[in-house]
Design a protein around this nucleic acid. Structure first.
Length: 278
DNA sequence: CTGGGGAAGGGGCCC
DNA sequence: TGGGCCCCTTCCCCA
């Protein structure tokens, strides 16, 4: 059973310091220790039951040879806290069989989420959530279901929540949802319209849209038709134009077999009642 | 009404 | 992670 340390902290928008996870940190970059802060240790087979422990603290656990030191740290000029766990015994997660923790482990609380997102389900610290309040359970940071044991949370994550919870990123301006943060950010630009034309003030979501718009001012038409003398400012419009040179129209009505150069024309044709079944 | 041009929106992919 | 590009689509206007 894992040990869990939940830290009372202020949530910030700062980026987690991921680098700290990958490197051995042998020097505490701390500027202060807040003794009133508490950390939480969950129930485990070999540690005492759930306890709120003021830090810094040096603790001895029954049946364990050695002491464990806990202290809370605030990196300089940051409002987040990290928890330092120092011990002189090989701490091992008895269930997952993970490697013993090093002689000193520093756990920036925001990085708990990072561990989770890396899919490292064997890490005994998974599921810990810096929510700004002291937790009394292993809590899923997606759906906030609480479990008394880590294995309960791990099973929940694997069987129930993994798909449901990671599926969507919601837009704060509308009700659209996306499967990735990048796609969401792209969509948000359609609300914020950061690309503004200096000539007319019209705003666009993306630079290349603005570029295409500027061509309407300059008259530039870089896309030429190989079959006639026409040129177009937009490649898609050239493509639509090329259909006019084709003997075979690309889009065909399933009912009357009439063909159209554009799907929009076919759609309009079908909407007018040619295909009552469709 | 139809066909075509112009302009623009938006998701996905690649670098 | 952001920018550029591709592709598809839609809407509007006009002949």
């Amino acid at each position: 059973m894992p040990r869990s340390f939940l830290v009372k902290k202020q949530l910030t928008n700062k980026k987690p310091n991921y680098g700290i996870l990958d490197s051995k940190v042998d020097e505490l970059h701390t500027s202060l220790v807040q003794p009133e802060l508490l950390c939480y240790i969950s129930s485990t087979p070999w540690l005492p039951g759930p306890s709120l422990i003021p830090t810094p603290a040096s603790m001895h656990f029954p049946g364990v040879d050695g002491d464990i030191s806990l202290s809370m740290h605030s990196p300089r000029q940051e409002s987040t806290y990290s928890l330092s766990v120092s011990h002189n015994i090989p701490l091992r997660d008895s269930h997952s069989g993970t490697e013993p923790l090093g002689p000193q482990t520093i756990l920036p609380s925001q990085d708990f989420r990072y561990l989770e997102e890396r899919g490292n389900m064997r890490n005994p610290l998974l599921g810990l959530v810096p929510t700004g309040v002291i937790q009394e359970r292993f809590e899923c940071f997606d759906c906030h279901k609480a479990y008394f044991t880590f294995s309960g949370l791990a099973k929940h994550r694997q069987l129930h929540c993994q798909w449901q919870c990671h599926k969507y990123f919601s837009c704060k301006y509308c009700d659209k949802e996306y499967v990735s943060l990048g796609a969401l950010k792209m969509h948000i630009r359609t609300h914020t319209l950061p690309c503004v034309c200096k000539l007319c003030g019209k705003a666009f979501s993306r630079p290349w849209l603005l570029q295409g718009h500027i061509r309407t001012h300059t008259g530039e038409k870089p896309f030429s038709c190989p079959h006639c003398s026409r040129a177009f400012a937009d490649r898609s419009n050239l493509r639509a134009h090329l259909q006019t040179h084709s003997d075979i129209k690309k889009y065909q009505c399933k009912s009357c077999s009439k063909t159209f150069s554009r799907i929009s024309l076919l759609s309009k044709h079908e909407e007018t009642g040619c295909c009552p079944l469709s």
